[in-house]
């Protein structure tokens, strides 16, 4: 192996422009332990400074670097070239199901608006003001919430969901997954309010349970399971007359 690990080069096609765009080809030296984000950064620093893309943490925490790599949505800072390149070839597109801004940068507004529409935010109660809530780590609710809590808001599940592409109003896996954590948060003052918000015709009942979201989530979460939970809980609430 050559000392710098640059014994071969990669052929990289990158989408340029908005909806009306084209692929631009670049040749990028191959390095050991190189990530897709490294490739994109190399292009921007060394080959074409006008390339637009988004990243922040580079360690899989912020959720801002998601792109479509060889046809699949991925977090590019944690995706190694060696695991996805096909014969030294990499094709990079912006995330699917999002309006394109320029090159690899998409507009995430709709995605986060849907978190708001799904009422996917904590509703505090007066009781919280009197001190710490006691949440049993072994309780079912805590375990359900824990299984879904590590979302980094990367939008990969949203890009992977066919239902989003068919029904642009669909709230999508990430917002529903977040709502599920709140329904299971014993401190939340309005669990039925969360259920009401996600039981609409573009909410949890529309999900096909085909797990496109789950198979692509870089944090190995299962929005599909969360959505199934929402279906169960909203049915129980309906029987109790709470919806």
């Amino acid at each position: 192996m050559a000392a710098a690990g640059t014994e071969k080069s990669l052929k990289v096609d990158i989408w340029r422009g908005d909806d009306d765009g084209y692929y631009q080809s670049f040749t990028v030296p191959h390095e050991t332990s190189q990530t897709i984000l490294d490739v994109v950064t190399y292009v921007q620093r060394k080959l074409d400074a006008t390339l637009s893309y988004r990243f922040a943490c580079r360690v899989g925490m912020c959720g801002s670097c998601a792109m479509t790599v060889n046809g699949r949505p991925r977090w590019t800072c944690r995706t190694h070239v060696d695991s996805v390149a096909e014969d030294g070839y990499i094709k990079i597109d912006p995330l699917r199901n999002f309006p394109r801004v320029k090159d690899l940068a998409v507009d995430m507004t709709v995605f986060f608006d849907k978190w708001r529409d799904a009422k996917a935010r904590f509703v505090p109660s007066e009781a919280d003001l009197d001190g710490f809530a006691q949440v049993d780590p072994d309780s079912r609710e805590r375990k359900e919430a824990s299984a879904a809590i590590e979302c980094i808001g990367c939008g990969i599940c949203y890009a992977a969901c066919d239902l989003v592409s068919w029904n642009p109003d669909y709230l999508g896996p990430a917002a529903l997954n977040r709502a599920w954590t709140l329904v299971n948060d014993v401190r939340d003052a309005d669990p039925n309010g969360h259920l009401k918000a996600v039981a609409g015709d573009a909410g949890c009942h529309a999900c096909h349970s085909q797990q496109g979201c789950t198979s692509h989530c870089p944090k190995s979460l299962s929005p599909t399971a969360s959505i199934a939970g929402l279906k169960r809980k909203s049915f129980a609430a309906l029987l109790k007359g709470a919806l």
Binding site: G200, D201, H205, F235
Partner: peptide, 12 residues
């Protein structure tokens, strides 16, 4: 309203 309709359809 539409939420309850969806829910009932789901149950049915």
């Amino acid at each position: 309203m539409s939420g309850r309709l969806e829910l009932w359809l789901f149950v049915l």
